[in-house]
Write a protein that binds this DNA or RNA. Structure first.
Length: 396
RNA sequence: GGCCCGUUCGUCUAAGGGUUAGGACACCACCCUUUCACGGUGGUGAUACGAGUUCGAAUCUCGUACGGGCUACCA
């Protein structure tokens, strides 16, 4: 009996949901539905500094609009909650302490200033960004260099500290990626990542492993930017739960903008939307336009995202969501990054507008017109839509 | 700098040893059309480079180059 398929999308509520995020959601969703599995959304809100009010609501609104709603989440319930990491805080400490007790992690008392000084002192032309790793951990203030008594005293006194993973000195760590095949790392070049922060919150590295285990995740899909930290996660799986428990991984290719990784910040600069829906940043008061408001139909948005880095091997490009559920396969996802082409995106939308009947189009068109100050009767509008041979809905 | 990933038309991609290297978007031309679009037909356009394996390489191996990502008490 195969393990039950359970996948998750784990966004952090720090702002708008961009293209790449929605595509990750989509691939998770398609994979789950195809395998009669469960799609989970887990909120990774472990960084209090980056938390943005309203971002979580916004993410769920985007998923609803795109028709990619999860089976389990803080909003949809489920037996594996809580689904917000901030509400699971106490859990992580226990695993961190276990790692320390077993010699796989240690307490570090270095202040941010200490770390800054270390980076300055060890910086050379050959090594412009020194790591807290095996070559320098014995020069820092931590439970490896301090006596057990000193460490105990510091802990007792409530000294601010973090827990760092102790990366083994000379090991090859490898795993099989569903898209890239076997990937191998040498632990000599992996640094001692922080697992538990001074505020008691876990970092992503600890939280993702603990929660994927506790939530019985069978397959973990995430952006390619996570590939370099995979060895840390693999080691944690080995130490904590056993490598045979680890989910199958797939690192999705990045969606590139005109120059490099599509970033949330550059929102407006590209001349096309990067977010699924309009995002109003509560801090900067900045409005970033979304595909929905630009006139994209959710069916088209899903379709174009699916084909950005994946195809079914035929020359077909237009798929409904249900057809995607049948046709999708992670192994056919292209390994190379895909540059987003807005012209092609508009073509997808155009195709969907042609496919959609006039009555269904009336509602969004009416809203568009109303926003522009034009009010119409439904019947008249439907007639116009039929007569006008479906011009492009988006204005540009 | 180090590590990891990648490299087929401008862009998204097909072709998993033998094809005139296929399709889509964009672009160009022509047709349709009272205008602009839409639509139709056709066209320009790619295997990064160098070795090797093989009767035969876009496809397998190695090197080089280039691109991207990571290198935070962010995810």
């Amino acid at each position: 009996m195969e393990k039950k398929i359970r996948v998750r999308f784990a966004p952090s509520p720090t702002g708008g949901l961009h293209l790449g995020g929605v595509r990750t959601v989509l691939y998770n969703y398609l994979f789950a539905k195809q395998n009669k599995g469960t799609f989970i959304v887990r909120i990774e809100d472990t960084d209090q500094n980056r938390y943005v009010d309203g971002a979580e609501d916004y993410i769920f609104d985007c998923l609803k609009w795109a028709g990619l709603e999860p089976d389990e989440s803080p909003r949809h319930g489920g037996a594996f909650g809580p689904y917000r990491q901030s509400e699971r805080k106490a859990l992580y400490r226990e695993y961190a302490d276990k790692l320390v007790a077993e010699g796989h992690a240690y307490y570090a008392f270095d202040t941010p200033e200490d770390l800054e000084r270390m980076r300055q002192d060890f910086k050379t032309d050959e090594n412009p960004s020194p790591q807290y790793d095996l070559t320098i951990r014995m020069k820092m203030r931590n439970s490896l260099t301090l006596s057990p008594e000193e460490t105990a005293a510091l802990l007792q006194a409530g000294t601010r500290h973090v827990v760092r993973i102790k990366i083994p000195e000379n090991r090859q760590v490898s795993f099989h990626d569903m898209i890239r095949g076997d990937v191998q790392f040498d632990t000599r070049v992996v640094d001692d990542k922080v697992l538990l922060k001074a505020d008691g919150m876990p970092t992503y590295h600890l939280a993702v492993v603990v929660d994927d285990y506790l939530m019985q995740i069978s397959h973990a899909f995430r952006g390619e930017e996570w590939l370099p930290s995979a060895p840390v996660h693999i080691l944690l799986w080995e130490y904590l739960f056993g490598i045979d428990q680890m989910p199958k991984w797939a690192h999705l290719p990045l969606i590139l903008g005109p120059q490099g990784k599509l970033s949330k910040r550059d929102g407006a600069k590209y001349g096309f939307p990067v977010f699924a829906m309009n995002w109003n940043d509560p801090k900067t008061k900045e409005l970033t336009e979304g595909f929905r408001e630009k006139g994209f139909l959710p069916e088209a948005f899903v379709n174009l995202l699916a084909l950005l880095g994946w195809n079914d091997g035929s020359e077909r490009e237009i798929f409904t969501k249900d057809e995607l559920v049948d046709a999708f396969s992670m192994e056919r996802v292209h390994a190379a990054g895909a540059r987003f082409d807005y012209e092609k995106a508009k073509w997808f939308n155009h195709e969907w507008i042609k496919k959609t009947d006039a009555a269904a189009l009336a509602t969004p068109v009416k809203k568009l017109l109303a926003d522009a100050g034009v009010h119409t009767a439904d019947d008249a509008l439907i007639n116009v839509i039929n007569v006008e041979e479906r011009p492009l809905l988006p204005s540009s």
